[in-house]
Amino acid sequence: MIFQNKIEVIPFKDFMSRPAAIIQKKTPLQTNIFSFIPAITVKGLLPLSDMGFTLFLVASSAVVIIALSETLFAHSGFIEVSAGVSSVLKFALPVAGYGAIFWLLSTL
């Protein structure tokens, strides 16, 4: 019983009175505070209005489609076509990959 809680007694008349004029009301914040982190939206993740990003997206999609078509040609039995596409991809994939890395580093 080292610490003893004191009980405060408030009369009923004081408890039910209107002290609203005495209490200071909190005013809402009047200035706008913007976040440093932008909202995560589809438009924010895929900025198609940016020409560099659109070009990067089209080029990478074309490389993926060509790589998949080479695999489909090989499975279908068109070995000559698959070998031709493969020889093009041996040059196109490294150029596209190093170009994408260069683009990323130059836009930072």
Rank of each mutant, 00 (worst) to 15 (best):
N32P: 02
H75V: 12
G52K: 09
S35Q: 08
F36Y: 10
I7N: 00
P47D: 06
E8K: 01
V64Y: 11
I33N: 10
S76I: 11
S49N: 13
G77N: 04
I22C: 01
F91P: 00
G52F: 11
H75G: 09
P11V: 06
A21I: 13
A59M: 02
S76H: 07
I33V: 14
V58T: 05
P94F: 01
A96P: 01
A39V: 11
I65L: 13
I40P: 05
E70I: 02
L89N: 02
L72E: 12
F15M: 11
G77C: 04
L89V: 02
T41V: 08
P94V: 02
K26V: 12
D50W: 06
A96V: 11
S17V: 08
K25M: 07
I37K: 05
I79A: 13
L72I: 09
I66Q: 09
A67K: 01
V42M: 10
S35A: 06
I22V: 14
L89M: 04
T41Y: 03
V88C: 05
T27L: 08
Q24F: 07
G77V: 05
G52N: 15
A20R: 03
S87C: 07
S76F: 04
G77P: 07
T54Y: 06
I65R: 01
S17F: 04
G84I: 08
V81F: 01
N32L: 07
I66F: 04
P38W: 09
V81W: 01
V95F: 06
L68N: 08
A20P: 00
S86L: 14
Q30F: 02
A21Y: 09
G84H: 03
F12G: 07
F56E: 11
K90W: 13
V64W: 08
L29I: 10
V85Y: 01
A59K: 05
A39M: 06
P47A: 02
F73C: 11
A21S: 13
I79T: 14
S61T: 12
A74I: 05
V85R: 01
S49G: 12
F12A: 10
N32T: 13
G44R: 05
A62P: 03
T31S: 10
Q4T: 06
L93P: 00
T54S: 14
A67S: 15
P28K: 09
I23G: 02
L68Q: 08
L89W: 08
A20D: 15
N32R: 05
Q24C: 00
I79E: 13
I23V: 15
M16V: 15
S86R: 06
F36N: 11
S69F: 06
L55S: 15
T31F: 09
F73Y: 05
D50G: 00
S49T: 13
I79R: 03
P38R: 03
V95T: 14
F53C: 07
I65V: 14
V64I: 14
A67T: 12
L93A: 04
S61F: 10
G84S: 13
Q30M: 10
F73L: 15
F36V: 12
S17I: 08
S86E: 15
I22E: 08
I22A: 06
V58P: 02
V81Y: 00
I10W: 01
I40N: 09
M51Q: 14
F56R: 05
Q30L: 13
K90D: 14
A21K: 10
P47T: 12
A20V: 10
F36A: 12
